[in-house]
Design a protein around this nucleic acid. Sequence first.
DNA 1: TATATTGTATTACATCTGTAATCCATATAA
DNA 2: TTATATGGATTACAGATGTAATACAATATA
Lengths: 124, 124
Amino acid sequence: MKSVPHISDAEWEVMKVLWAKAPCTANEVIEVLEAQTDWKPKTVRTLLNRLAQKQAISYSQENRVYAYFPLVSEDECVKSETQSFLKRIYGGAFKPLLVNFLKEEQLSAEDIKELKNILEDKTK
Amino acid sequence: MKSVPHISDAEWEVMKVLWAKAPCTANEVIEVLEAQTDWKPKTVRTLLNRLAQKQAISYSQENRVYAYFPLVSEDECVKSETQSFLKRIYGGAFKPLLVNFLKEEQLSAEDIKELKNILEDKTK
DNA sequence: TATATTGTATTACATCTGTAATCCATATAA
DNA sequence: TTATATGGATTACAGATGTAATACAATATA
């Protein structure tokens, strides 16, 4: 039973690229990220290597070039990060977060409806 | 305009103690944390020092002993951490977190009622 | 074929973090 | 007064992270 490896902030950006579209060559990832960050190509390659080492991604060698793809799903990573975030900040007591943020944040009428529906379902 | 310093996981535990009750001597903090973690006293002292360095806390010298207290409020730290978490994981959107989280977590009937009321208020 | 390019692998290096231990000055006890 | 205990300051040290540069091997080019 493997849990997801810890993915750092910078690595997370790389994962997002691969979650959006995979497989992807290093150069494709680099291109996407150069538009969003000011990382040098070598930096992105380092991140790809580290992610491969920690088995968050893998690659197949097409010709001379690697085609990278995720080994862990966005969903499970988001869940895992959310869990540890909540635990860290609220020590597991998440209701204060909800109360606090429901009050603070901008939510559309539609959002609110959706959330109420979810809550409705939980009552059962 | 100072923003809150970044507080690491371990440091966060110390902050929680001081937010719950301050001022506090190092030994008081150590005592609380020894019940919750298996950190050695020296470890807690290191964390107190680091937090003081990064000006998250400060102290007054009562007699021979320091009385530590927070310089940053729990509220602003929580907000700041939540913001960067949301940005990192959800690209800034708050709703996906809520959805994810409402589905996953255990909420009492009472909690649900309270949350629904808050949502109700927001509709106006 | 010799050379330049390009993709990958290895190495670099400072800072942050987790997790303390040691050193030092002072207060306390004998 | 002298030895001891205790609180605080300094130092330690490995692994993670941000941010690359350099070395190397295979490929494309002249």
